[in-house]
Amino acid sequence: MSDNGIRYISKPHPVTGVTNSKLGIWCFLASEVMLFGGLFSAYVLLRASAPSWPHGPALLNVPLATLNTLVLITSSVTMVMAWASLALKDFSKYKRYMAATILLALVFLVIKSIEYAHKFEHHHFPSTNTFYAIYFTLTGLHGLHVLGGVVVNTYFLFPGSALWKKDPEQFRGRIECAGLYWHFVDLVWIFLFPVLYLL
């Protein structure tokens, strides 16, 4: 490695015991917890101070959101299986699992788009009321995170996967970091689903 390269991205740092890449992604995820935490806090404040609050199932499509939850959970499994395939040095299996992860993420976005289109058809916009304002903000920001994950995972499925031949350990580390991000996106939805759709 050249002297000006980022150090300890394949091997653990002697002080922290983890690679700098992993430390970096966890710091990023910590900031993401605060980003979504602020919005969840806003949701609690809006709901607690509202004279009345609509019951989620009365306004939103619970069966479609349940399906979306199962889709995202499945994509989390395929993501961790992609990483495990690399750990077992089975690159073709990795490609299959990563492709499945991307496909499931796209299915999630398509279902979410159907939900949004249905809302817009009925003239329900973020400006309609406080419930829709926080609903679109939270699900919209989450949707953007899903889209971001699709972009990163697609890179690692096609051009980025060339690294596997040059430095398999570093590539596996990258997939682990992409996986941590993807599981976080799943985690956020695990809380968004009951809070917005079921309560």
């Binding site: 983890v18 430390l23 710091c27 910590a30 917890v33 602020g38 969840f40 989390s76 993501m79 599981h183």
Partner: peptide, 26 residues
């Protein structure tokens, strides 16, 4: 999935601070 059960102390410490501030936010 995120392997936190077998993760190093430095990551757990970062998350502990995050959880504290998340609770403050809530």
């Amino acid at each position: 999935f995120m392997h936190l059960l077998s993760e190093k102390q430095v990551i757990i410490s970062i998350l502990a601070v995050t959880v504290f501030f998340f609770v403050v936010l809530m």
